Simulated scan of single mutants.
Amino acid sequence: MYITDLSIGTPPQPFRAIIDITQSNLFVPSWNCTKNPDRYEVEDCLYHLMYDSAASSTYEPELTPAKLHYYGVYTWGNLSRDDISIGDVSTTGQIFQEASMWHPAYLVDWDEQYDSALGLARFHATNLYDDFNVTSPLENMVQQKVLDRNIFALKHPRTDDEEGELILGGADESFVNSIITLPLINTPAVGNDLNFIAFASAGWQVLASSLSLDSYLDNGPLEIPLPNYIALLTNGYTNMMFPRQMAHQIAEHLDWTDWLDDFSCEKRHRFPNVTIALGPQQHRFVLSPWQYMHEVVDLEGRKRCTLPFHPLVEDGEHPNYILLGTAFLASWYAEFDLDKETIGLAYRDDY
């Protein structure tokens, strides 16, 4: 979960927004949420900063009913319009959902850490639950010409103590000589596969050509060709996902039976490097176990590691794709260029 500050209204009202490259609809809790007769619904809202339309001189009512689902949180409310700011970038007349009901699903508690999501999808991301489709903050930045360049860059933090960086309208010039540029492809988000539709519709997709793992224990190197495969990039999901048969090959290679198991991070050095070839030039991106593994802390305060390779649920017309979440993306400085229609990746040597 990657959080930035976002403000809405005049004077500005602050919110904590998840930076999500596969989200487009903007939403915030409303002060009207506190008027709900259900006290449990009110309590869910009180964990959040809430938007007060009466306190903003630039607020304009839209009053269209709207519902939304975002990673286990369901919201209902109306559409509203107001000015927004992220850092020194501001746009006017942004339409967003003003949620008068905020309902996390059972056992969902991570929503207490954020109030909104800053959607940086290239296209409008399709969510089959949402019943509204409005111009995203990123689209408004481009249309209102408030960016120096139609580009944004991300350096994701790898630990809770580390700060990341979001650059809107520019790039980190220290990576100019090392960045590898990958052309984006546009595969229609159609069919019945909800995983594919949700992430492909956001538009950050590139060609993939192979996946390989170095030798492990008594197993020699594992080479998996990916002919005509699509790699979907997202920071809204932590793991990397592969077709079920491919995930089974990886599990056999690593002598692993349950992807949810954790283990002592002291064993991390035994695991192999992973290489993914992307783009028409088949650029090879190598990840060490220190890069692709997740670190968690168990109930006894011990540092534990988990593997990020998970099987996709394949139920649609696009079986030839892989999903690369932050287990991949956080290892690289990333530039997203809307005009050139490219993603640039550069290795970060601050590991």
Score class of each variant (00 low, 15 high):
K340V: 06
D5C: 01
I276G: 05
N228I: 04
V297F: 04
L194I: 15
E295T: 10
E43D: 13
P319N: 01
V206I: 12
Y237K: 09
G220H: 05
F123K: 10
N219V: 00
T187Q: 11
Q13N: 05
L79K: 07
Y40F: 15
A171T: 15
F175S: 06
G279V: 03
D82H: 11
A327V: 03
K303Q: 08
S30Y: 10
T326H: 02
P29I: 02
E317G: 00
V176W: 01
G191E: 07
L166M: 11
A208D: 03
G301K: 02
Q245K: 11
E165W: 03
F199G: 02
S212Q: 12
I8N: 03
Q205I: 11
G191Q: 09
R16T: 07
S264I: 10
Q291P: 00
P37E: 14
N239Q: 12
I180Q: 13
Y321D: 02
Y347L: 14
E112K: 15
G316T: 05
R270T: 15
A189F: 06
A247K: 02
T342G: 10
H253C: 07
A117G: 00
D130E: 14
P183K: 08
V296S: 09
Y74I: 12
Y51N: 06
D88W: 00
Q97S: 09
A171K: 14
N235T: 03
K340A: 14
I197T: 10
T181Q: 12
S57L: 12
S53T: 12
D20C: 05
N239E: 12
G77H: 11
A247P: 06
E317R: 02
S178N: 15
E335V: 07
Y237N: 12
K303M: 01
L226A: 04
N192P: 01
G9H: 03
I8P: 04
S331C: 00
G9Q: 04
L312R: 01
Y292N: 02
D88V: 02
K303N: 09
T92W: 03
P227T: 00
L6E: 02
Q94S: 10
A327Q: 00
A105D: 15
L260S: 13
T342A: 06
M101C: 02
A327M: 00
